[in-house]
């Protein structure tokens, strides 16, 4: 069993991030993702960390001393791991997307109940364009492009076992990303390659509306949406946005949509504070906070209710950040580097 470095608890970071714990995944391949999930061991559910490198995915459980112990590893020898796909409300199961540049497979990782040995099950294969784990133990994926696209919801049993499948009506446009709607469990959003936001009814599979959004920023990606007072508030990122002299580089945008009329207005542009540069590289949105890794190697955090950047985390130990995720088990921020270092901050 590998036990990680001692954590540091007293370091204060710029803004409102406080370092709680850190560890290094000693894998030799490139670190590609990190996530926090609930995992059940000996009839108790624990908040665990999942790390993914190109050829191995590891589950780390917390020890009393804020150290982390590696308890399970799954190995991938044929196709490299691209991302972790957490599925909320399912314990003892994590999904991963595998592929080279694009996703070719989605696999479920679990342990057999008898000897606790690691197992992996192939769930989907093909030209997978987007995948997202949803509340109520659901996983949505889109396979194919344009008219040959299949959008499918898979529902897991509570123990990760038997599953049910349902098709959603495809939009005849290639889907870039999916986003859940907070406060409306039966609604799902997707962004497409032609800058449309599509809205589905997950219960019936109906495609309810297509909303064309401002063409100022191409290839916008939806991260999360909120339903309030008959309107949809959608958080988009703009990986392809060019820097402008007036606003700097817009990293996230909060857009309000009237689903009835398909009209939309941008209400908040999350730009970098003065002195910071870079474009959106990858990011995560949870509740009212949005975090992004920038091309400069810095992490920036915005409070969407306050409407401004609340924390900037420069590269640590002379190494750029490459990953940022909000924990699914508490209010922590997970920040990762390519060499396997994972830092856990309290926000």
């Amino acid at each position: 069993t590998e036990i990680t470095d001692l954590p540091a608890r007293d370091s204060l970071n710029p803004g409102s991030l406080q370092l709680v714990s850190k560890f290094k995944n000693p894998s030799s391949s490139c670190s590609v993702d990190v996530s926090a999930v609930w995992w059940e061991r000996a009839a108790a559910k624990e908040p665990c960390i999942i790390t993914a490198c190109e050829d191995v995915v590891s589950l780390w459980k917390p020890l009393d001393t804020l150290q982390w112990e590696k308890v399970h590893t799954w190995h991938f020898t044929e196709v490299p791991v691209l991302q972790i796909v957490p599925v909320p409300d399912v314990y003892n199961l994590i999904c991963v997307a595998l592929g080279n540049l694009e996703i070719r497979e989605i696999r479920a990782l679990l342990c057999s109940s008898g000897d606790e040995s690691e197992k992996q099950v192939l769930l989907k294969s093909g030209n997978i364009k987007a995948v997202l784990g949803l509340t109520k133990r659901r996983l949505v994926s889109s396979i194919g492009t344009f008219c040959n696209q299949q959008v499918q919801i898979m529902t897991f049993a509570e123990d990760g076992g038997s599953k049910d499948e349902q098709l959603l009506m495809p939009p005849d446009e290639t889907i870039l990303a999916f986003a859940e709607v907070q406060g409306m469990q039966d609604a799902l959003l997707g962004t497409t390659t032609v800058n449309n936001i599509v809205i589905w009814n997950l219960k019936t599979g109906q495609l309810l509306k297509k909303v064309h959004i401002d063409d100022s920023y191409q290839a916008s990606v939806c991260h999360r949406a909120y339903s309030e007072m008959g309107l949809l508030f959608v958080v988009l990122s703009h990986p392809c946005a060019k820097e402008s002299q007036v606003f700097g580089s817009p990293v996230f945008q909060l857009l309000v949509i009237n689903p009835k009329t398909a009209q939309s207005v941008g209400i908040l542009l999350c730009c970098l504070p003065p002195g910071q540069a870079g474009r959106f590289l990858e990011g995560d949105v949870k509740d009212h906070v949005a975090a992004a890794v920038l091309t400069s190697g810095t992490i920036a955090v915005w409070d969407l209710l306050l409407g401004h950047c609340t924390a900037v985390l420069p590269p640590a130990s002379d190494q750029s950040w490459s990953l940022v995720k909000w924990s699914g088990t508490d209010s922590h921020l997970l920040a990762g580097q390519k060499d396997g270092n994972v830092f856990i901050y309290r926000y």
Partner: peptide
Amino acid sequence: CRTADLGPISLNWFEELSSEAPP
């Protein structure tokens, strides 16, 4: 937010769109 730009708002938009959209 200039909600006038967005047209008439319905609190039951999800049910209304579901009843109008093709099955």
